[in-house]
């Protein structure tokens, strides 16, 4: 569904919420990538994947590149789909660490659950972005003259003061002094 705001209209995008989510995923991607590049050994140890430090660091580079792509591109859609593919790769790699002798299987399970959660967000974001039109939105309709008051707003403001609000629609009498805080009617608080 495409919604427009003044900000998104300028950029040719429509749905700021999805844009925000995409940006969030981009930042997350870079943060995770940095962790993988900086501390592949610690991660490998935590997951019982010793000997695969190079692979983890490589995945980190992939995450950083994808994150930069999301944040820097005009249209992040293909980059988010790229994240979905990367999530699949991560899950497949983690699945190999689930073999019976790995003492860190519990950590691997937690990591897989986390990746699955992020994958759901990635898929949602990618699908929503894909439904949007890539072309800039058409010019905004000008409704600034659609007042609805044939004689002008000044003439109509308060024109229905003659309307007597039916008794069953009135503010309950007990609430009235509180709802209408005129000095003379304001009750003295009882302490």
């Amino acid at each position: 569904m495409r919604y427009e705001t003044e900000r998104t209209r300028r950029r040719g995008h429509a749905d700021t919420a999805t844009d925000t989510l995409a940006r969030g995923l981009g930042i997350f991607s870079i943060a995770l990538g940095i962790a993988e590049v900086v501390a592949p050994r610690a991660l490998a140890r935590a997951l019982g994947m010793k000997g695969q430090e190079g692979l983890i660091a490589g995945y980190g580079v992939r995450e950083i590149a994808t994150g930069i792509g999301i944040l820097a591109s005009k249209d992040p859609t293909p980059w988010i789909w790229g994240r979905v593919a990367g999530d699949g790769l991560d899950l497949a790699t983690l699945a190999t660490a689930l073999e019976g002798r790995n003492p860190k299987k519990g950590n691997v399970g937690i990591a897989m659950a986390a990746v699955a959660g992020v994958t759901a967000l990635d898929v949602y974001c990618a699908q929503t972005l894909s439904r949007e039109s890539p072309t800039p939105l058409p010019p905004m309709q000008d409704y600034s003259d659609r007042t609805g008051y044939p004689g002008g707003i000044q003439q109509s403001h308060g024109a229905a003061k003659d309307f007597e609000v039916p008794r069953d629609f009135r503010t309950p009498e007990a609430m009235r002094p509180y709802a209408q805080p005129q000095a003379s009617q304001r009750p003295t608080p009882s302490m």
């Binding site: 403001h157 229905a160 003061k161």
Partner: peptide, 8 residues
């Protein structure tokens, strides 16, 4: 909106 304006 317009009703609220009419009602002052």
């Amino acid at each position: 909106i317009r009703s609220a304006i009419l009602l002052g």
